[in-house]
Amino acid sequence: MSEWLRVFRRGIGIENPLTVLMIGLCATLAVSTQFQNALFMGFAVIFVLAMSNVLVSLFRRVIPSQVRIPIFIVVIASFVTIVDLVMKAFVPSIYSVLGIWIPLIVVNCMILGRAEAFAYHNKVGFAIADGLGMGIGFSTVIVLLAFVREILGTGKIVWFDSTLISLPAGFAPPSLFLLFPGAFLVFAFMIVGARWLNERLDARKEGPACRV
């Protein structure tokens, strides 16, 4: 069980796919303009990642290694199609914004990378832990990024037509944060933050002095 937790925690912290491994960036930067969209994107990624990890891990002895990549892609594409159609049916307002990025989860290097690097060589239980951990790590970063961008860019956080938080009226929101350059800038500072946090944690545990 402690091994399971270790695998699970790794995705959130020291091997976070976004801030440490830097994979799956495209979707992150593009989708993180609104808190609400980022949350749904996070759910979609957690679902696809966990399910494709489970399936790849279950069939790892049957899949011949020469054609494993096309097989992984087909597995991932099927789960992405499920998410695509479910979102289109139940949350059409979110789908119309996320629309283009849901099919692109197929080629998100993070999901293929976890299938190749982890699920193909490990038992189902650990594959679930890895899929959930990496997915939650991804979602945490994307939701935080979206939160910062939305609150600075528009001055408020919106959740399905109702305003959750709004900054005082005197604040003139710079729309730069909603545009493309803002994503790069905010994300750069998030990486710095993650590095600083990892260093602090390492120092406390008296592990290796610097992991960056």
Partner: peptide, 21 residues
């Protein structure tokens, strides 16, 4: 020190993207 490597590259990409905008 913490900015070296990728973070500074991201900031540069942000400025480059600003010019494309």
């Amino acid at each position: 020190r913490l900015m070296k490597g990728t973070p500074i590259a991201f900031i540069t990409a942000g400025l480059l993207s600003l010019s494309y905008l």
